[in-house]
Design a protein around this nucleic acid. Sequence first.
RNA 1: GCGGGCGUGGCGGAACCGGUAGACGCACGGCACUUAAAAUGCCGAGCCGCAAGGCGUGCGGGUUCGAGUCCCGCCGCCCGCACCA
Length: 872
Amino acid sequence: MTTERYNPRAVEPRWQKAWDEADLYKTETDAPGEKYYVLEMFPYPSGRIHMGHVRNYAMGDVVARYKRAKGFNVLHPMGWDAFGMPAENAAMQNKVHPAKWTYENIDTMRAQLKSMGLSLDWSREFATCDVDYYHRQQMLFLDMLEKGLAYRKKSKVNWDPVDMTVLANEQVIDGKGWRSGAEVESRELVQWFFKITDYAEDLLAALDQLPNWPDKVRLMQKNWIGKSEGLMVRWQLAAETAPADMSELTVFTTRPDTLFGASFLAVAADHPLAAKAAESDPALQAFIEECRRTGTSAEALETAEKKGYRTPIMAVHPFDPDWKLPVYVANFVLMEYGTGAIFGCPAHDQRDLDFARKYDLPVTPVVLPPKEDPTAFSIYSEAYDGEGTLYNSRFLDGMAPAEGFEAVAKRLEHTDLAGSPQGERKVNFRLRDWGVSRQRYWGCPIPVLHCESCGVVPEARENLPVKLPDDIDFEKPGNPLDRHPTWRQAKCPKCGGEARRETDTMDTFVDSSWYFARFTAPKADEPTDPQAANAWLPVDQYIGGIEHAILHLLYSRFFVRAMKACGHLDLDEPFKGLFTQGMVVHETYRDGREWVSPADVAITEAEGKRSAKRLSTGSEIAIGGIEKMSKSKKNVVDPDDIIASYGADTARWFMLSDSPPDRDVIWTEAGVEGAFRFVQRLWRVLGEAAPHVAGADAAAISDNEAAMALRKVAHRTAAGVAEDIERLGFNKAIARIHEFVNGLATHLAGLSADSDPSLKAAGHEALTILVKLIAPMMPHLAQECWQVLGHDGFVAAKGWPAIDESLLVDEEVTLPIQINGKKRGDLTVPAAASKADIEKAALESDVVQRALAGGEPKRLIVVPGRIVNVVV
RNA sequence: GCGGGCGUGGCGGAACCGGUAGACGCACGGCACUUAAAAUGCCGAGCCGCAAGGCGUGCGGGUUCGAGUCCCGCCGCCCGCACCA
C-alpha cells in the first residue's frame, strides 16, 4: 500500500489549534502531581526569533513534555525581556514609539514561537515593559530601599558617550560599551545601587549547594565574587616625613607571612595620601594626572608599564621601629580594591618584583622552596609564590606560610597603635555593589522623588505605578525623561510640596532578576503571591546561554535573597538546575568583500572539494569559517523559512540531534534534510504497519519469539530514551530512536493482516511506544501518528510508556574474549552464569584453545557481564 | 599571566564505574526500483594490506590482565578572568 507523504504544513497548524482550544498546556498551581518548573531564558523582543531561540526552546519543551508525561505538574511559561536600548534606537531611527515597536515585535515573535508548537502556558505571558509588571518592580524597589538594599551614592561611572548612559562594570568589555562599542569614559555621578555585596559571602558559599549547575558557571561566579582573606595592617609613617595630619597608612594583604620580605609600600594615584603629598610636589601632581589619563581604558591598563613615583614619605615596619620603607604612588595600585595601598614583597610577587627591579629596591626572599639550600637560594627575574618554609623572618623562621599568617595576625591584633590594634583580619571581595541607574527612557522608572525640603523621598505605595509618559521626544541624545515638559513635576509624598521625579530608570537586568518568580502568579497585586512562589520555586531546570553565566544569574540569586528579606518568597536559590546550551553556528560565504546569505548560495561538491556559487549572480564565491549566526556576517537561517518548508518538528529534531546540547551545533542544509527524511521515514514505516496492527489482540502479545524480540527492543528504547532525556542528552535519545525505527522497519517488514496475532499486538505496542518517545521532540508528528494508530485524545496528555522490567534483562549475554588484552572472539553464556562457568566455557572455546596451543594460561580474568581476558 | 575545558574516521559525534573504540547521523560508494532522474529500499565503509594480519582515540612516557577513560610531561585549539595586593 502507499502512504501519502507527511505534510507538516497542514498538520502542524491543525494540532496547534486543537491544543489551544483544549487549553492543553495551561497549568494550575494546585493540580495533582509533583511540581516541576522548567524555564528557558525569556527572549528580548528584537523583531524575529532566531535559530538560537529554536534550539533553546526546543530543549526546554522536550523537558516540559517529558516531565508532564512522567506525571509531574509542569510549569512552562514564556514572557518578554522587553525594556532596553534597541527600542529607543528604533524610535530615534524610524520615529516609532518604543512601546509600539516593542509590542509589535512581541506579536510577531509570539506567532513564531506558537508555530514551533511549544507546550507553553501562554495565559501567564507578560512583558517586562507592561505597566503591570514594572509597577510590581517598583514595589520591590521601595521594599529594598526600606531594607537598606537600595541606596544612592556618588560614584565614578562608566559613561557610554554614544548611548549617553551609564554602564555596569560588567557591561564594559575591553574598555568599550557592550552594546554601542564606544570607548567608555569615566564620570562622577550620583547613582542608585543595590547592595549585592551584603550577600557576597552567601552568594559564594551557596554555590556549593547547586550541584545541578555546570562547574564552569559556578567557578566563573566564584571568581567574579573574588573572596580573599587577609589582614589589614596599619603602618606608622615616620613623623618627620609624613604630611601634616597623616600618621599612618593601612594596607590590605593576603600574605602577612611575607612581611619581612617587604621592601616598599605603594598607594593608588587616587589615595588621599597621594593627594596630600602632591600638594607640595608638582612632579607628583603630574604623575597622578598621568595615571588618571591611562586609567580610563582597560586596554591601556593591560599594556601600561608598571610605574611609580617615590614620595619622601617613609613607613615604619610593624615589627621593627628602626626599619623604614619608602612609600610610592604607583599606577598599578587600584583605589577600588582593598584599601588602595599595598606593601610590596618582590621576592614572592611577580608584579612587586618587576617594580623592585625597575626602581632598584631590595629583594629579600623569605619563603624557602622545599629542598632548596637557604645560603644558595636567590631570586632573579621570577618571583616564587609557592609553598615552602619561612626564613630571613625572625620570629617566623621555620614556619609554613599559613602558620606565619596566623602568627603575624595574632601578634598585630594584640599590638596597640594609637589606641587600637595594629592588625585586623579582613575578608575582601572583588564583587562591588550593583549600579542600577540608567539615564534612559525605556526602562522601569525608579519610584523616588527629590524634594527641596525633604530630600530623597520614596514615592508612596498608593501612588504607584510611576508610569512612563507616552508623549516623548527622541530627537536629541540623552535621557528623554529629563527633557519632558511636565513628567518630572510631582508632589512630595511626605510634605506635599513641589518635588521632582527621579529620571533614572533601572538597568534591564533588574527586570530579568525576578521574572521567574512573577510567572508563578503573574496577575498578583503584590510582586508575588508567596504561596504560589513557594509552591513552584525554585526553577527545577533553567536553560539558556552561557553568556549569562555571571550577570543575570548572579543578580537573580541576589534578588531572591532580597525578596526573601522583604517577605515576598521563602527561597534560598532561584534555579535548582541550570543548563547552558551551545550556540547555533553556520558556515560563512563571501563574494569579494561582501558577505552572502546561505539562502543565496548553492554548494557543489566535486572530487571531494566543495565549492560555492551565488544563486543571484552565478558568480563563484568563497566558503569561509563556521561562525555564530549573525546578521553582520549574513550567515543566518530564518526559522520561519525552515518551518515553512520542513515544519517545526523537523527544525526541532535537527536542533536536538546532531551535537550534545552544551556544544555548538552546526546548521547545515544537509542536516535539516536528513531530519526531514527521518520524519518521512517514520511516517511511512508507521503508516504501512498501522492497518495491519490495528485492533490487534493485546492478550496475545508475548506468544512468539519474534514478538518478544520486538517488545524487548521497544521497552529498552523507552527506558533508554527516558534516561537520556533526564540527563538532557537529547542527541543520544535521538540516536536511540533512530536505531529503534531501523529495527522496527525490519521487524514489521513482512507484516500483513494474516500475520501472527502476537506479532501484530507487539507491533501495535511498539508503534505506540515509538509515538510516545518522539512526542516530546516532535509533538505534531507524534499526535498525527497517535491518531493513525487508532488512539483517542492527545498523546501530549498521556503518560510515558509503562516499562516492563522483565523485558530489560537478557537470558544470554555475549562476552568478548580477549587474549592478552586484545579482542579475539566472543562467548555467549547464560546471563546467570557463574564466574566458574564462564571460566570453563572460555577455556573450552576455540579462540582460547588456539591461543594456548596446549599450554596453561598465565592468568585468567573474568568479569561477569563484561569481559574475559586470557593472559598466555 | 591566572583559572577552566576540549583534542576520537572525510564531518557532527557515541563509548555511563578502566572492560568489544567508532553507536547514531551527515557526506560518500555500490546495487535494486525507474525510459531517466528524484524519492525510496538494501548493502558497504577507521587506516594500511589481495589476504592472513598489522596499526589506530593530539604527541611522549607510566600504572594495569586490560587505558579514549587514571597518573606524569609536552603540543594544539576554545572559553572565562585579567595590575585584586
